[in-house]
Write a protein that binds this DNA or RNA. Structure first.
Lengths: 200, 200
DNA sequence: GCAAAATGTTCTCCTTTTGTTCTCATCGAG
DNA sequence: CTCGATGAGAACAAAAGGAGAACATTTTGC
C-alpha cells in the first residue's frame, strides 16, 4: 500500500462502496478525511490505482471501482477476460470476470522453487520455471511432490504408492525411467500446488 | 543477528509487519524501544540489512521489508527457497531469497486468459492454463502473442516477422503447421508475459 | 434541450514528516 | 585505556501531504 494517507482513502472508499453500492465522490472522501482539496484526493486515488488497489473510470462521477471485493482489498487480482482458442475473438466469461491470484498465492505454508532440469517436461514444467510448493509430509497418489531421497537428493516427481508400501517416483519425461524406493528412503517435503513462469 | 538491541528492533519490525501488513516508521520503532533518535533506529536497521535480515527501500516511508521466511504470510510474497533438481537437497539461492509476486502480477495493463487447446504445448502452455497478457499492439520477433486474424479469430502463437512484411504465426506443436498472413490481416492484441497453473 | 452547478483532472506552491547522515557523548568489557 | 555498542541530537534531502486555482467534462435542475 502506498502511504498512510492513501490507505485511509482506500479504507473509506471501500467501506463506502460496500455500504452504498456505489463509490463516493472526491468531495465526500475529502470531507471524511478533513481535506479541503479534491486534487489531493485525486492524487491519492491515482497512487492506489498505480498499485492495483482500484480502478478509476476517467472523468466519471463516482468512477472509482474497487478491484475485487472478495480479497479483502489485497492486490493480486487481474481481470479474466475469457478463453482463447482457435475461433472467434476473445470472449468474456460471464460470471467469472476476475481471478483472484492472492487466494492462490497468499500462503499459509508455501514457498517457491525454481526448477532445474527437464524431468517434468511432459507435465509442462520446464527448466527455469517456478513451482509453488505447499509444505507437508503427506501426499496423495498422483500428486507432484518434492521428495527427499536418502536425505541427500531432492527431486520433483509424481508420486505413486504401491501396494507393497513402496513408492514409485515418476518423471514426466519419456527418456527417464520411474524409480521405485522403499518407503523409508523417501521423505515428502511438499506438494506442488501451482506453477508460474515469467516470459521476461 | 548483529546485537541484542538489533534483535529487539527486528522483533518489533516483524511483529508490526505481520500484524499490519506494512512496516513501522522509524519513529514508531523508536518509541516502542524507548529511543529518542530516529538516527539510532536507522543504524540498527542498516546493520540488520547488512546481515540480510531485511531490506530497506531507500527514502521511503515504511520502507522496511522483511526477507525470507519472515515475509511469508504477506500477500504477494513467497520465500524462494532454491533450486530443485536431480541431486542433493534444496539449496538456498544466495541473494535471491525472496520473490515478489505482486510486482509481476499486479499491473495496469494486464489480464488473464484461460488457454483452450494444445497449440502451444511444446512451450509448456497446456490446455486450461492461465496466461498473463500485457495489452499492446506491437510485439517483437519471437514473442508469444494474442493475435486476432481477420478480426474474427483469436489465437495464441509465437510471432515471426518476415522480410516481406508478412507475419508467420507458429504454434508450438509439431502436429500443427505455421501459418503465414499478410500483415494487414493480423492484429496483435497483447503479449504473453507470464503463465501460471493451479494444481487443485 | 440548455445553462448552471458539480465533478474530476491537472498544476504549482507550500508545510510537515520521514529517512538519512553526521558528530559527539556515555558506558561496559577486555 | 581502547574498542565496540548504544544513544542524543542537529542538519539535510526527499517524500508525503495539503491548499487552491484553473480547466474540461459530466451531471443536474429547470
Amino acid at each position: 500500500m502506498p502511504t498512510d494517507r492513501s490507505r485511509e482513502v482506500y479504507d473509506f472508499v471501500r467501506a463506502y462502496t460496500l455500504r452504498h453500492g456505489y463509490a463516493p465522490k472526491l468531495r465526500e472522501i475529502a470531507v471524511h478525511l478533513g481535506i479541503r482539496s479534491r486534487g489531493v484526493v485525486h492524487r491519492h486515488l491515482r497512487a492506489l490505482e498505480d498499485e492495483g488497489w482500484l480502478r478509476i473510470e476517467p472523468e466519471r462521477a463516482r468512477g472509482v471501482r474497487l478491484r475485487g471485493h472478495a480479497a479483502a482489498g489485497r492486490p493480486g487480482q487481474l481481470p479474466l477476460l475469457g478463453r482463447i482458442a482457435a475461433g472467434r475473438p476473445i470472449e468474456a466469461i460471464p460470471g467469472e470476470d476476475e481471478i483472484d491470484l492472492s487466494e492462490f498465492f497468499v500462503n499459509h505454508n508455501r514457498f517457491v522453487l525454481r526448477v532445474a532440469g527437464n524431468s517434468m517436461i511432459e507435465d509442462g514444467i520446464l527448466d527455469g520455471d517456478m513451482v509453488v510448493i505447499e509444505k507437508r509430509e503427506m501426499a496423495e497418489n498422483g500428486e507432484i511432490v518434492v521428495a527427499l531421497i536418502d536425505g541427500i537428493e531432492a527431486t520433483l516427481k509424481r508420486l505413486q504408492r504401491n501396494r507393497d508400501g513402496s513408492l514409485t517416483l515418476r518423471p514426466a519425461n519419456s527418456n527417464m525411467p520411474p524409480l521405485r524406493y522403499a518407503a523409508a528412503r523417501v521423505r515428502i517435503q511438499g506438494v506442488v500446488v501451482g506453477q508460474f513462469r515469467s516470459y521476461r
